[in-house]
């Protein structure tokens, strides 16, 4: 899986965001680095929801955050509407970020506990305008209503007076108030109960349709990702494994890692036969010293010598379904591997 390559990228003219060869490294002691993201290329079309899925530490959040330059990638480019975000100066980047907003995992800690909800949601408007107070209030009220919060009641309350699900909706209102194009959702439902999770997922779908949003949705729950995404990218240890239209990914996973994830995902149906004996001895390898060749090979039951020596490149297995693996689980049409 440790794949590179750009076979899965689409025509640059047809996409809203195109990230190429993203590398994010965090320096640690003794001159070593954490290879959080190692050569990831992604694109998202206007109005599309891209799901990013993988275990913790696979670099999915870092990848998504590097799209909005939080922090900027160590190398690689992010092009948004034809502008290369990595080359912008601070002022232009701040302006560009009004189009690219983010919601976070923990709804309670992402709202300032000492500020009133009305002020929290109005904050982006105070920076970017309109500066007229009445206009700000009416925009804030409209936004709160759009996420199902009664502005008359909520405006003067503080975050602790709301449930986790309501706080997440307030965060969504804050992200939407500048009328952005893209929202990066970093595990927005992972901390919520299932009933509240359903509300947030439904709401994101509605808002996406109403406001013409493009979403990048990060989650570790495969069922959640499938529900909301049009296209899904599976990540492992800083690399992409598989990119596919979402239904195809689940019907015919091509990467052994996707198969492992799907097999581990809890299914609320006791008649499904679980593999209840599998216990791996090995831990996730460290991103400080990732395995050679395919990074997944140390946990892969299909791994061969080739996997240790040669990094697999992204190649197409069927229409809009790409995998980076030397031994994919589905047959690959005869074609030359497209390498970067």
């Amino acid at each position: 899986m440790a794949g590179s390559g750009k076979a899965h990228l689409r025509d640059p003219e047809s996409v809203l965001i195109r990230a190429e060869d993203l590398v994010v490294e965090f320096p640690i002691s003794q001159g070593r680095v954490v290879n959080a993201v190692s050569g990831v290329s992604l694109d998202v079309k206007q109005g599309e929801t891209l799901g990013l899925v993988g275990e913790s530490g696979c670099g999915k959040s870092t990848t998504a955050k590097s799209l909005i330059q939080l922090p900027p990638p160590t190398s690689g480019t992010v092009s948004y509407l034809g502008t290369n975000l990595t080359s912008l100066d601070e002022k232009a980047l701040r302006q560009a970020r009004t189009d690219l907003q983010m919601i976070f995992q923990d709804p309670i800690s992402s709202l300032n506990p000492r500020r009133k909800i009305g002020d929290v949601v109005a904050e982006p408007l105070r920076v970017w305008g309109p500066h007229n107070k009445d206009e700000q209030i009416s925009q804030v009220d409209a936004m709160l209503e759009a996420v199902g919060i009664d502005p008359a009641i909520a405006r003067d309350k503080r975050p602790h007076e709301f449930s986790g699900g309501q706080c997440q909706r307030i965060s969504i209102a804050r992200a939407l108030v500048l009328n952005p194009q893209v929202i990066i959702c970093d595990e927005p439902v992972s901390a919520l109960d299932v009933s509240v999770q359903a509300q947030i997922l439904n709401m994101l779908e509605d808002l996406k349709a109403d406001y013409g949003l493009t979403l990048v949705f990060i989650a570790h729950d495969l069922a959640v990702v499938k529900n909301i995404s049009d296209r899904i990218a599976v990540m492992y240890l800083g690399k992409l494994c598989e990119v596919s239209e979402s239904n195809a990914l689940y019907d015919a996973p091509a990467h052994p890692y996707t198969e492992l994830l799907l097999g581990s995902s809890p299914v609320p149906d006791p008649t499904i036969n679980l593999d209840i004996t599998m216990v791996e001895e090995e831990d996730l390898p460290s991103p400080i010293d990732p395995p050679s060749g395919c990074r997944f090979r140390t946990r892969c039951k299909y791994a061969t010598d080739r996997c240790a020596q040669e990094e697999p490149m992204m190649r197409e297995v069927s229409q809009d379904h790409y995998v980076a693996c030397h031994h994919p689980l589905v047959s690959v049409p005869e074609m030359a591997e497209v390498s970067a």
Partner: peptide, 10 residues
Amino acid sequence: SIPKTDQPSH
């Protein structure tokens, strides 16, 4: 209310 992997997207 639980999303399931055997349901289609959306």
